[in-house]
């Protein structure tokens, strides 16, 4: 399993791809440094800053897109290059294969996304405990998307395309307009987790959250269910 893990990790870390993803993840920090450099206003961890940087940029953009790109590629590239066949021939259980692929995605995506949000928040003076909460919620959110899109990569070669439609239309538009959608939205869960863990710091999300327990259950169910579905798919599919 370690072998598959390191191999998958190397596949994910194409030179240009990593560079682009790093640049994307650095955007919140660069933005804050820019505003500081202009020196027209003092930023604090509140209101618009949380709304636009944490929700708008990180949770609504960087987090899903980075995670989806990596997670769909985990099996998608193997299918596209017709190498999955060799992988399933190895004397390794299917559970280990799915787990190795998922972990490879997480090992890259979690630190990147967490750093992306936490560094920016620390720069505008968020407290240590708030930063911890933020890191936890972002990591949970990355794991949820990763679980969903590891399965998607096994289902269709156009997984990332469908993923982008889903993120933009479902998570981006519908979950902000139709409140019921938030019960079936990773973004909805993430905002509720943040608000539930630290109501004071994340008061900005007050109007847009579902119940805290629902978010916890939702996150857990999605992660486990999609992992099992991916496992089932790998067991039953015709590997080309």
């Amino acid at each position: 399993m370690t072998e598959i893990f390191t191999l998958s990790l190397r596949q994910l870390l194409g030179r240009w791809r990593v560079l682009v993803i790093l640049l994307l993840a650095a955007m919140p920090t660069l933005l804050i440094l820019l505003i500081r450099a202009l020196g027209e206003a003092e930023l604090a961890f509140e209101g618009e800053v949380i709304d636009l940087i944490i929700d708008g940029m990180v949770i609504g953009g960087i987090l899903p897109i980075v995670t989806m790109t990596l997670a769909t590629a985990a099996f998608g590239n193997e299918l596209e290059d017709k190498t999955l066949y060799y992988l399933v021939l190895k004397p390794v259980s299917r559970v280990s294969i799915v787990l190795a692929k998922l972990l490879a995605t997480l090992v890259v995506a979690v630190p990147l996304v967490v750093a992306s949000g936490v560094v920016a928040s620390a720069l505008v003076g968020a407290e240590t405990q708030t930063l911890g909460t933020l890191a936890l919620a972002l990591a949970a959110s990355v794991t949820t998307y990763a679980s969903i899109f590891t399965l998607a990569g096994l289902l269709t070669p156009r997984a990332l395309a469908y993923g982008l439609v889903y993120v933009l239309v479902w998570e981006g538009l519908l979950s902000t307009i139709v409140s019921g959608v938030r019960y079936l939205s990773v973004r909805g869960y993430t905002l509720a987790l943040l608000h539930g863990l630290d109501e004071e710091s994340f008061a900005a999300f007050e109007q847009r959250v579902i119940e805290f327990p629902a978010a916890i259950v939702g996150t857990g169910v999605v992660i486990v269910a999609f992992f099992l579905l991916a496992l089932y798919r790998l067991r039953t599919m015709d590997v080309p």
Binding site: M27, M57, I62, I65, T69, R158, L160, L164
Partner: peptide
Amino acid sequence: AYAAAFVIAVFVITTPM
């Protein structure tokens, strides 16, 4: 897929920026 993801990423994050 990467072409699409890159374009969407640029457009999605420049709005809140």
